[in-house]
């Protein structure tokens, strides 16, 4: 995998998210209360709401537009709703965060 550095874990508030702009669109990087880090497309499967702006609880986020709850681990909608967003591999080394994007991976290959 081709890992790209995106910054430090401390750049993201606990139970919060930040965005990373990429050629593949906006990616939301989440930090949970327990310092787990997840990255998913910043685009709710329901109506495209910016998931990075939602409330983070456990390892899920609630979309700010219509309250769909998305699992950060699987990208899948929880509860009665159906849909999924792409998850992006994340690596934490010390405080540094890296993500692996498909397009960049291909370029490297």
């Amino acid at each position: 995998m081709n890992w790209t550095s995106i910054g430090s874990i401390t750049d993201i508030p606990r139970r919060g998210a930040r965005c990373v702009n990429t050629p593949e669109g906006k990616i939301a990087v989440f930090r949970t209360a327990e310092d787990h880090v997840f990255a998913i497309d910043d685009h709710c499967p329901h109506k495209g709401g910016p998931l990075s702006q939602g409330i983070v609880h456990g390892s899920s986020v609630t979309c700010p537009l219509h309250n769909w709850v998305i699992s950060l681990e699987t990208g899948k909608a929880l509860g009665a709703d159906e849909g999924a967003v792409r998850t992006i591999p994340v690596k934490v080394e010390g405080e540094q965060l890296f993500i692996a994007l498909e397009a960049l991976r291909n370029k490297a290959a």
Binding site: I6, V20, N21, T22
Partner: peptide, 13 residues
């Protein structure tokens, strides 16, 4: 201020 700007821009900018 972290709320108002992306954490990083990669690949293009």
């Amino acid at each position: 201020k972290h709320e108002f700007k992306p954490m990083a821009t990669i690949g293009m900018a």
